[in-house]
Amino acid sequence: MSTASAVPALALAGLVKRFGGTVAVDGVDLVVPTGSFYGLVGPNGAGKTTTLSMATGLLRPDAGSAAVHGVDVWTDPVAAKRMVGNLADGVRLFDRLTGEQLITYTGLMFGLPREQVLERTADLLRLMDLGSSAGTPVADYSAGMTKKVALACALVHAPRLLVLDEPFESVDPVSAANIEDVLRSYTASGGTVIVSSHSMDLVQRMCDHVAILAAGRVLVAGTVDEVRAGSTLQERFLELVGGRTRSEGPTWLRQS
């Protein structure tokens, strides 16, 4: 964390994206220090996925800039993307390939030497507990297994920055704990992780930094302790985002 003052792992400045008449992302600034474990939280439709797409070179912003370790994503996308491991949410994989083929393919795409690709693929299959279904087409995987193989693909080229959109959705608790360990030792060794998640407990436990997004804007960002300011992250989130209703629900739903 001593390098935090140097070039940040990811710097977003004034990102804007409009879809037709609606503004999905409305001027997002964010600085993710190198070596941090950064959580990105927000209600549905807050613009998390859109922001991360623009940060990783998948969606061209209408305005603003994104830089990975000082390399501008939109002027030098090839160099920037080499440093990024990306787990995008809501996209398909090449699901006719088997899990093993998919990870190998991704490794080869990044130009890793063949022996290294084979070795890393074996390691990742073991880490994700996918060994017994390595030869099965990804199309036949369950949601959690698909998530794990996508995560393995994001890791295979040992990126300096990991961008994980909803990485733990439908992943079983054992795999999740194993992955968490790996990510922790990765950040301890100088790697940077950004996760978007709906699980406040998970973010509070795993992350050292957090930003709360709503309606395309950053409401608050900083270290987890700064943001939650004494209360839990969950309480702070509800307080900032609002929209919580404290009713007992419609009367017709009550069973007695």
Binding site: T104, M109, S132, S133, A134, G135
Partner: peptide, 28 residues
């Protein structure tokens, strides 16, 4: 879902690099 590792298909013979990886994927 169950199937052992070891069947790399065209990925087993593709040299490394984006063109060859794309070739193997496309051919598959």
């Amino acid at each position: 879902a169950s199937g052992r590792a070891g069947r790399l298909s065209w990925f087993g013979i593709a040299p490394t690099g984006a063109t060859a990886a794309g070739w193997a994927r496309s051919l598959r």
